[in-house]
């Protein structure tokens, strides 16, 4: 046990450094890589009643929120945290508040749930993004 006690700071240090190195490698390999240059993207907003607003734009922005902020007539409101960025609650004044209505704005990339939130989602040329009013039971706008 004394031997372990003597070794524990060394072993602990090696473990901590190994964990840190592993995290850095995994993050470097998996982090969202923004695309440089001009991209053509489309953004749809599907409201509670099923009506849809469609936006098409050409952008130099690297992340979705940056691109959306440049679209006249499309406003996102919500709460921002350092960890996840903007948590969208209202789009064009239409609210989906999970606490109040059990509903949220799902963000889809080419019809599939995006891996990141609107602030951290790197955009790709030709990609189609959808904000879909979704109830917590999985039913979307108009359902």
């Amino acid at each position: 046990m004394n031997r372990f006690k003597r070794l524990s700071p060394f072993l602990g240090g090696c473990t901590a450094i190994a964990v840190l190195a592993l995290l850095l490698v995994i993050y470097t390999l998996t982090r969202p890589v923004p695309m440089a240059g001009t991209k053509n993207i489309t953004v749809d907003v599907v409201y509670k009643d099923g009506t849809t607003d469609h936006y098409q734009l050409k952008t130099e922005a690297q992340f979705l929120l940056e691109a959306i902020n440049a679209i006249p007539g499309l406003t996102l409101e919500g709460t921002t945290t350092e960890e996840t960025g903007l948590m969208v609650i209202k789009i064009n004044g239409k609210q989906a508040d999970y606490k109040k209505d059990g509903a949220y704005w799902a963000l889809l990339c080419d019809g599939e749930p995006c891996n990141y939130g609107v602030s951290q989602q790197a955009i790709k040329d030709g990609e189609h993004y959808t904000f879909q009013y979704t109830l917590s039971d999985g039913k979307g706008g108009g359902a």
Partner: peptide
């Protein structure tokens, strides 16, 4: 790891830090 032994502050900090990273 420590049963009834008290770790040094450095060992405790390493344990806590590793836990935080994981």
């Amino acid at each position: 790891l420590y049963n009834k032994n008290c770790p040094s502050p450095f060992s405790a900090a390493l344990l806590s830090g590793t836990f935080g990273m994981l």
